[in-house]
């Protein structure tokens, strides 16, 4: 097996690692970097639990090989926590979290949306989060939590 020299930036830090070519980006983030906030749900792109920001775009890290991230900037939920992203506080305040497994994916997707469209309507929030599943049925509070941050953006 020929190892791949992966150079990328994760949460602002430059990373250079030799990796197995069969690693997905999700496995690299969780196993090699120990950033376990990014979750594996379905492994098929249906649930959104594995979302990370890749050059500012939310992508399903379970459907990317780690080598595809070469030369890119990755932000995980830990990166948003470290920069005290208001979405994290808002999800807690609005009780948008039950078991919490899906939440990192929701926050990553919401961050992408609000970065691009700080005035997103509720319908736009729903549309944007359509690829994220929550099995504790917490959608209303999740949408509310994202909406609260949007309103702060507007002030």
């Amino acid at each position: 097996m020929k190892k791949y020299l992966l150079k990328c930036q994760v949460n602002g830090k430059n990373i250079e690692r030799e990796i197995r070519p069969d690693k997905t980006l999700l496995e690299f983030i969780r196993e090699d970097l120990g950033l376990t906030g990014t979750k594996e749900g379905c492994g098929e792109g249906e649930c959104g639990a594995c979302l990370v920001l890749l050059d500012g775009r939310a992508v399903n890290s379970c459907l990317m090989m780690a080598a595809q991230a070469h030369g890119k900037k990755i932000i995980t939920i830990e990166g948003l926590r470290d920069e005290k992203n208001p979405l994290i506080d808002s999800f807690a305040k609005e009780a948008a979290v039950q078991c919490g497994f899906c939440i990192p994916g929701f926050i990553i997707k919401a961050e992408e949306l609000l970065s691009e469209n700080p005035e997103a309507t509720d319908d736009e929030i729903k549309e944007s989060l359509a690829g994220n599943l929550c099995r504790c049925t917490g959608y209303k509070n999740i949408i509310k939590a994202v909406g609260k941050v949007r309103k702060k953006c507007l002030k």
Binding site: G45, G48, L51, L54, R57, A58, V59, N60, L63, M64, K109, E127, S128, A130, G131, N132
Partner: peptide, 9 residues
């Protein structure tokens, strides 16, 4: 087409 995150890929 699928979800917006999949459309990013």
């Amino acid at each position: 087409f699928a979800s917006s995150s999949l459309r990013n890929m």
